[in-house]
């Protein structure tokens, strides 16, 4: 049983270290792609709205997303 616990601890440590390296090396696109003349806004957290199906449509007379129509 000790080997199982050891393996889990090592897995968590490796994953934590990888996550820390990632967070130092990578930036969100709105930071990485911004430049002196172009500022990209933080897009927020929920980019898809309440309908996560990816199948919603834009209604013809509105720019708002309609969740009623689905193919």
């Amino acid at each position: 049983m000790r080997i199982i616990v050891t393996s889990i601890v090592v897995a968590v440590l490796l994953a934590t270290a990888a996550g820390a390296v990632f967070s130092m090396a990578q930036k969100p696109v709105y930071q990485a792609r911004a430049m002196a003349s172009v500022r990209i806004d933080d897009p927020g957290e929920n980019l898809v709205g309440p309908d996560w199906s990816g199948l919603h449509k834009i209604t013809p007379n509105s720019t708002k997303v309609s969740h009623a129509e689905r193919p």
């Binding site: 090592v10 897995a11 490796l14 994953a15 934590t16 990888a18 996550g19 990632f22």
Partner: peptide
Amino acid sequence: YMHNAFPWP
């Protein structure tokens, strides 16, 4: 986050 971190172990 976990799906990006645990591939390494």
